[in-house]
Design a binder for these strands. Structure first.
Lengths: 219, 219
DNA sequence: CCCCTAAGTAAGAAATTTATGAATTAAATC
DNA sequence: GATTTAATTCATAAATTTCTTACTTAGGGG
């Protein structure tokens, strides 16, 4: 990152840096190629360290992948906690929640990619990690609260199951990122361009608000 | 499929059958493991033919993958054409369209998996195929028509861009299939169980209809 | 300043996986 | 029934990729 990694000869000793660099490179590599497509060789080359070090720190390609998985999934939690919706009225809270969810996926392509690959592998590794299971997510709690209050106050006309609604919000926010390449070819429109994504954001918020029947939202 | 493939020695000659079996097995293999995770060896073993045959018919693993991709994407078209919406009034047509889209993904897991993998590879291969590009899909035309008529007749209160709406319909229909494994671990609910999927279907239709503000839909 | 631990290097073994050359034989054609 | 075509087999080359054994050296604690 900071030191431009001396090509030949000796590499200065700094276990923390080396470990962190390997993790960083692993996230990119696994994100770009998936578990099977990833090459330990490329990872160590990207870091500029000897191939043996990867095994020194992570034992095997598989263990490295699992570490990367845990790393990125625990990382979300921190971001989620930054969102504070308690004080906002239901409609404003919901708009902010959808916007936040959208922005999260939009600005964390690595998360999107690694999650996709883990699903390709049928969750083989994520089921093994303890760190990921959380009986209730902050965002889920927030949704449940917002809906409750919205129904009570008459801000929302329709009732939805919180989990169904959350899956829907994520779906609308992330599907074009997950399937952008195939969709773009089929429709002849680049769903991954900044312009399309910006318009998608507006659509996402409007669509969800309309489905809740929050009067002021339009289009 | 029909003949239980003789284990040793001689395999009866039937190029079409062999080719079809290889394609079938390839779809499963690529779907289950992705391009890099797929093994030509497993494919030929599944068919029960000699490993050399795969190269005889498809030249390389890569060419086989591309053939599989084309196969499954052109297959959709046939299914899409079966949907006839022209005669239905806008609300009924939209409900049917959403239901159809949902059912398509629900009953074509192979398509879902292969599309996911192709997106993992950033659409590297789909851009090479001619067969997939279709300037306008039957379903897109249908949506445009339904929306037009719905607005005109006052059945729909909100206006949406047809492509945005279609992406949303697909998103709501397929996201739990694309990300079922990670979501299930995180939420402790099996999003891939028949029960959850059945409930998801109801939610999908209700949500879209409400977002269009088609009065009778509820929940 | 020495010693010891672990960070790092060099080189290549081991295992896996894709692909091919060349012979064999079943079926289609005339 | 001879001839031809290509479907199928056998054996193995070629390439790739993960991982290990053995060695070297930097740097901190006493």
């Amino acid at each position: 990152m900071d030191v431009p990694t001396v090509k030949t000869g000796t590499r200065s000793r700094d276990p923390e840096r080396t470990r962190a660099q390997l993790m960083e490179a692993a996230l990119t590599e696994f994100g770009d190629h998936g578990f099977h497509g990833a090459r330990v060789d490329r990872i160590t080359k990207a870091v500029g360290c000897n191939a043996r070090l990867l095994y020194h720190y992570f034992s095997s390609k598989e263990k490295l992948y699992i570490a990367a998985l845990e790393h990125i999934f625990t990382d979300i939690r921190a971001q989620e906690r930054q969102l504070e919706l308690e004080r906002l009225p239901p409609r404003a809270a919901m708009e902010r929640l959808v916007g936040f969810t959208f922005d999260f996926f939009d600005s964390n392509p690595l998360f999107v990619k690694i999650a996709r690959n883990e699903n390709l592998l049928e969750g083989r590794y994520i089921v093994q990690t303890e760190a990921v299971r959380a009986s209730s997510l902050p965002l889920m709690d927030a949704i449940t609260q917002i809906l409750e209050q919205g129904y009570r106050e008459g801000a929302f006309a329709h009732r939805y199951d919180p989990l169904q609604l959350y899956v829907t919000i994520v779906a609308i926010s992330a599907h074009h990122l997950n399937n952008g390449h195939t969709f773009s070819v089929i429709f002849g429109v680049d769903l991954l361009s900044p312009e399309w994504r910006a318009e998608r954001r507006r659509h996402a918020i409007a669509f969800v608000m309309n489905a809740l029947d929050a009067a002021p939202a339009q289009s």
